[in-house]
Design a protein around this nucleic acid. Structure first.
Lengths: 230, 230
DNA sequence: TACCAGAATTAGTCTAGGCTAAGACCGGCC
DNA sequence: GGCCGGTCTTAGCCTAGACTAATTCTGGTA
């Protein structure tokens, strides 16, 4: 009970990722996320429920218990500290550290994790800008908007780059869409899905597909006379 | 075939550890070392033989093939680089890093391993003094003697501390028996198993039990008129 | 109200890698 | 030469965690 198999850790982590607020997650969503069949999910949810990590109302989805949530947050902490370490200490690129952290988070002892945390200076954010839960599982919650949701004229600062495939992250990085970058939405042509932005002063024209996963903190919604889109 | 399960890696590593020279290893020795039953060993040896990693003549023990030996040396390299990292970068004590390295060696990608190797400056020895195989599996072979095999009067330098239980390694460390330390054998009382040494200038009296695993490079066997013991 | 489609669960298998119990081999002693 | 004890191997079983096929719900529509 005290030491969870890698599989269990993955299920708990996925539940948290799919519903950080604790809402119920359908079996099929978990199956898709974990690249596993639906019956496998049903089976594992049964075990996790018996262990008190999830509440599973048959045919009504599963949600983490308080204990499950603590486990999930511990995994998130491990993952993000490891990513920070891989980038800052080992010099790997932040567009390519996800897979390594994904494996290591299951196998590193608390002792080594805390030593690494110390080495990188107890960071509050990982290289993608995600907040790192503290030892007791507290995580900074912030109200971020998707860059694609901003109306023309808005100004914002990039805060998080959600994990995505490597080429996409590499593209974001190459055009300056990195945590901390200032963004100004110049025009949005909804019909043909074209965004004209300036990113850190440089002009960028792209489709929405190339922006999903970039989360920003809004500075100014729009110049005078313009209303915020939903 | 290209990616070996943790279990397979452990068997191959154990075979190398029990017979670095490539000699045959009895099933029972493997079982003992891996804390596994003899039938489990027979079963796994069958699989490893089918995969070309070991040669298994029934009832005559198993030995590594050239391929198996390459795998084993890669594992040794990973283990020792990781130990070096845990000590030099994370600041852990060399008497307590073995278990962590034992787990991590199976889960770290080549990319991360090489980054770590770079970070610690491509060391040739780990913190216990063991030589680290290079990328192509070449390992420095040296003729070391057990400290307990030295005759009275001999002078030597500690070169390797063989992995052992933590308290024992901690004791060695606390009395100065660390790689690089100069040792002078003052007296050996074979009857009641007492060794009188001076270690880095400090006097040390102990039984042989407290010295097993300390390997030295002999400087001078004995003063005039004394013969070397076997 | 009855039916249908999609989602979830149940039933039954499979693989890796363990285990115990039982049988087969082999080297040494009488 | 025959037996005996230890060492291996074979036989059969177990668990975690996957899978596919078949079955059961359930909510929405005719």
């Amino acid at each position: 009970m005290s030491v969870l198999s890698r599989s269990r850790q993955d299920y708990v982590k996925a539940l948290y990722a799919l519903a950080p607020g604790g809402g119920p997650v359908p079996t099929s969503r978990l199956a898709e996320r974990l690249a596993v069949s639906a019956p496998s999910v049903t089976g594992m949810l049964g075990r996790l429920a018996a262990e008190g990590l999830v509440a599973h109302a048959p045919r009504a989805g599963a949600r983490l218990t308080a204990r499950g949530r603590r486990v999930a947050l511990a995994m998130v902490r491990r993952h993000r500290i490891l990513e920070t370490f891989l980038v800052r200490v080992l010099g790997l690129d932040w567009t390519e550290v996800h897979a390594d952290a994904e494996v290591l988070e299951h196998h590193i002892s608390d002792r080594v994790l805390e030593a690494i945390d110390r080495l990188v200076g107890h960071p509050h954010e990982d290289p993608h800008g995600h907040p790192i839960p503290d030892r007791s599982g507290r995580i900074q919650r912030r109200a971020l908007a998707a860059l694609t949701a901003l109306p023309p004229g808005a100004r914002a600062v990039v805060r998080e780059i959600r994990d995505a495939d490597r080429p996409r992250m590499a593209r974001w990085k190459s055009v300056g869409l990195v945590p901390g970058a200032a963004v100004h939405v110049r025009r949005v042509r909804t019909l043909d899905d074209v965004y004209e932005l300036s990113v850190a002063g440089r002009r960028l024209v792209t489709g929405s597909e190339g922006l999903e996963g970039v989360m920003v903190e809004v500075q100014r919604v729009a110049p005078e006379g313009t209303r915020r889109g939903r």
